[in-house]
Each structure stands twice: as structure tokens, then as C-alpha cells.
Design a protein around this nucleic acid. Structure first.
Length: 151
DNA sequence: GCCAACGTTGGC
DNA sequence: GCCAACGTTGGC
């Protein structure tokens, strides 16, 4: 089992949306490095749900991977913002995972708090200019985050 | 809304 | 395979 950090803009899809929907296909990832991380995810992995483009940005909750190697359906939908004309059903470019809602944290963990607690070696998103929407989180760091979130 | 840091595209 | 131009991300 391994931990991840998934970014999303709550204006389009936040932890509250996931809570209501219960499960979702994590669609719209169109970055190869992020996709390659998603390809290595396994069922039972836990992902921190990070809210970006809000004030303050930070980790809002937790979800669990319940299916892997899911073909992102939006790549074939011409009406979707995530449509990819160069991808074909024979040879899909974009795989992702399906997740289920686990919890909304009692303590929202802001980016400032993450910076105070961890180094940029601990957490990839703390690296200057990091834009990856899917990043791995070590078990050690994940356990500390969980403690802070539930304290 | 700005803009730095990235990633991608496509002409050559 | 280089790299300029362009697009996007996301904190501020």
C-alpha cells in the first residue's frame, strides 16, 4: 500500500463533491509524469485530496483507490475539455484510477502548515514550480499528515 | 489578474 | 533532435 497526493480545484471538483458522489473516476490528468504515477497505483492505496487554486490551498481529506488501469473516458469525448484527438480506443493514452471517499479531515492542513512541517524533499508539491497533479507521498510523511489531520 | 515555472508542439 | 512559441498550472 502506498500514499499519494491528488490535486484538484474545489471549484470544479472538491472533497465535498466526492463525498456526495461517494466514488469517482479521477479523470482529466493530461500530464505524462502524473499518468505514469497513476499507472503504478494499486487498489487500497490512499490519496490525500489537495485543494488548489483556493485560499488557503491545502489538504482537505482522504480517498482510497478502488480500481486501477481505468481508461479515462473523457479522452474520447469531443465535447469534453479533456478530449484528446490523438488517442484512440484501440490504443488509449490516458489511464487513471477510480477512488472512493474516505474522510474529510477535522483539521484542514494548509500549504503554509505543510511548508512549516516538511521539506521539499519530503513532499514533491513543496518544490518550487511543482505543477504535478499526482505525486507519491512516503509512508512516513503520510503518517505524520494523518496525525495532524485528526489531532 | 499576474507571472514564474513547466510541459508540449511543430517547424526546421 | 533542437528550440522558439505557445499553453497551462497554481500560488500569490
Amino acid at each position: 500500500m502506498q500514499h499519494w497526493l491528488f490535486k484538484s480545484e474545489p471549484e470544479s471538483f472538491g472533497i465535498e463533491h466526492l463525498k456526495k458522489a461517494k466514488t469517482t473516476v479521477w479523470d482529466g490528468v493530461r500530464n505524462y509524469q502524473a499518468r505514469n504515477f497513476l499507472r503504478t497505483a494499486t487498489v487500497g492505496d490512499l490519496a490525500f485530496f489537495y485543494h488548489s487554486k483556493v485560499q488557503p490551498p491545502g489538504i482537505a481529506g482522504l480517498c482510497e483507490v478502488i480500481a486501477v488501469n481505468v481508461t479515462d473516458p473523457t479522452q474520447f469525448d469531443p465535447t469534453s475539455h479533456y478530449f484528446d484527438s490523438k488517442s484512440s480506443p484501440d490504443n488509449p493514452r490516458w489511464q487513471t484510477v477510480k477512488v472512493r471517499y474516505v474522510e474529510t479531515f477535522a483539521n484542514y492542513i494548509s500549504l503554509d502548515t505543510l511548508r512549516d512541517t516538511f521539506s521539499d524533499d519530503d513532499l514533491m508539491i513543496l518544490k518550487a514550480g511543482s505543477r504535478l497533479s499526482v505525486t507519491p507521498v512516503s509512508n512516513k510523511v503520510a503518517n505524520r499528515i494523518l496525525k495532524m489531520a485528526r489531532a
